[in-house]
Design a protein around this nucleic acid. Structure first.
Lengths: 213, 213, 213, 213
DNA sequence: AATGAATGAGAGTTCATTCAT
DNA sequence: TATGAATGAACTCTCATTCAT
């Protein structure tokens, strides 16, 4: 190695090319896995699908993740790590439960739209896979976060006192499904979807505009 | 096989034994498939699991269904065939949209509880399969029915005029998830769950009891 | 099925063709495994090698044995099951330790020669596998038997009182290696080999003919 | 790597650092390989096991040996190179065949005990690998040497005239197996083992002490 | 020369499906 | 028609070896 090579521009990142591609590969695998799991589901997706999409060789996968399970778990961690803090901040800032719901839904839909750019929405034809759509492990982790926040709010009596488990489930369900639909439209309208979901959650169908008699 | 088995009982019904067995086997396979798919999910479930539970031999499966896919599809048809008419009747009888939602949810939860007796709710531990829970092909078909009914109602301007797609998605979502939770509890309380779901759908969180100040 | 087919000649074996081929296949796999393990050793041998030699398809192997390990173990059992009783009878019949050694060695060499017809003696070229030659799991089981018999004899003070562990090891070693050499020659002379081995075991080099001064 | 490392210490010996490292690395790999092959056997041992133990990187292995096979062969050469001369000297010094056997066995057992300190005797449990124990390539080479010496002696009519091939095999076998047993005991008693082996070889069981009547 | 990530052939094993009985 | 063994493609994962750094 030439001496020049050793003298590094302090402004440049302190990583060699090797480390760079290592990071890049890890990310490529993660991204490919997100896509593939999103499209095919955990069982149907194969490690080969993932690495092929990442443009790597079969064995390379195992340099980064010890198993199919492990990438899957890594994806979940990744999602939670990114959305968790956002949610926490929102929780702290919101003056009341309604405000929290409002901002959380909005943030969630934006997160969703962001994520969406990472998966190809294309679904394989002729394969029975009901409703697993849009179900990335990352989403699962985020849902868990949201559920926690809702349950906490209920415990603090900031929200309705109805069955907390049912409530969390229903709110999550709305966010999930409406979010799913949102992603299927062009352009993706997070604003509109959020408005709908918030209204539905807070006031139900009663809160939605009625047809004039 | 003993010779006696070959001698037809003259008192037996006119349907040949063969035909009887054929119908019985077809049903046995369908029932077994419902259970197995419910327990393990489409991918994890094997044809062997199904035929073993049906008490038949591997090859026999293919006398009734051409593939694993086909029995899966048949299940969906089966569910729709059973719930569809119920839904239609409800639709006809209901004076207004609210009444329809109320009765449909109730009917759906009862159908769900009924179905539930056919699957063992046990889920394999240590396998990442988020949210596929309670997702039988039959359910999927029923969901489709419900969605249709909602969309129709909206088209007929009996309900709110908000985005019909979002509305159907949200209603289904609530029914699905609350139904799921309902099935996890003992005793299974369809009444309570239906009340919650209806209230949530119609009036949202606002319609739920609030904590006294 | 015609009635004629059902009426079976009582002298013929009471098995259908299916069962026949099942038994035949099980044996074919076992035989192929014996050969392949003998030639390549446990690690190098692949399940594919075994089933290819058995003339079957990859999956078929697993209809008979649950794993590579299991055939291996089955082979050992097989050998022990066949030689164990012989050894026991010899032990009972022999008036003294010497007679036992004599007859046991002879029986062992005959067993060995018999076995030999089941393995192809061909060894893969260019592969380093020292001394694993002639080492079938079956042999291992037989060796264990022999060792047991020797140790027992020693314990009963019928033989020399020297270190029993060393003695058993040495006797086994001689039988094994001389047996190995014996198998490499044509024709296979069990008589000559047995004479040598017995003499070597009982009187060592001293018992062997010396060159005339 | 720090810049300082690149500046050669002027006080360092004349051999370039590179050359030193080359020799050291080659030896480190050889030593690691001896251990690893001894512990795991040829097949089970991986190149990674070897280089990890040598404290080097995967690629470095291939700067010294072209393949896993080659390092295996090199080990054999190494052993032969070390034991061969000893054996030759013994051969020259011994007045007769008995004396040669005696001294050769003793030397062999001492060599064995020496070698033993380089492998960890621990063997992986639950793996079927019968009798490959104690089988280093080095041992194999030494065995070949011994065999040669015995055959030569026989050819020179210094020993019994019985089948030389069988004789060599039997002697080697005893040495090998008793040596193996010897290594399993604590403390390692080369003296006792040698005495037993020599006695067994020269006079067979007859030469071993008998139980008093 | 040293490094260690990338490679891809090939291992053991599973399972939907076929087919002789 | 029922049977269940046979089939072989496809799966997850390992590892000797190569090669850019």
């Amino acid at each position: 190695m030439s001496q020049a090579a050793a003298i590094r521009d302090p402004a440049s990142p302190a990583v060699g090319k090797r480390e760079q591609t290592k990071v890049a590969n890890r990310q490529a695998i993660l991204d490919a896995a997100r896509e593939v799991f999103g499209e095919l589901g955990y069982e149907t997706a194969t490690v080969r699908d993932i690495i092929r999409r990442a443009g790597l060789a079969a064995g390379t996968f195992y340099n980064y993740y010890r198993s199919k399970d492990e990438v899957f778990a890594a994806l979940a961690d990744d999602g939670a790590r990114r959305f968790g803090p956002i949610l926490k901040a929102l929780r702290a800032q919101s003056p009341d439960f309604e405000a929290f719901v409002r901002s959380a839904i909005r943030a969630f839909f934006e997160f969703l739209a962001d994520e969406h750019r990472n998966w190809v929405a294309r679904r394989p034809e002729g394969e029975p896979h009901l409703h697993v759509q849009g179900e990335t492990p990352e989403m699962a982790a985020v849902f868990a976060d949201v559920r926690g926040a809702i349950e906490q709010a209920i415990a603090r009596r900031e929200g309705p006192v109805a069955d907390p488990d049912y409530m969390a489930a229903a709110c999550i369900a709305i966010a999930r499904e409406v979010g799913d639909k949102m992603l299927e439209r062009r352009p993706i309208d997070t604003e509109g979807a959020a408005e709908f979901a918030v209204s539905m959650i807070l006031t139900g169908l009663k809160g939605l505009p009625r047809a004039p008699a």
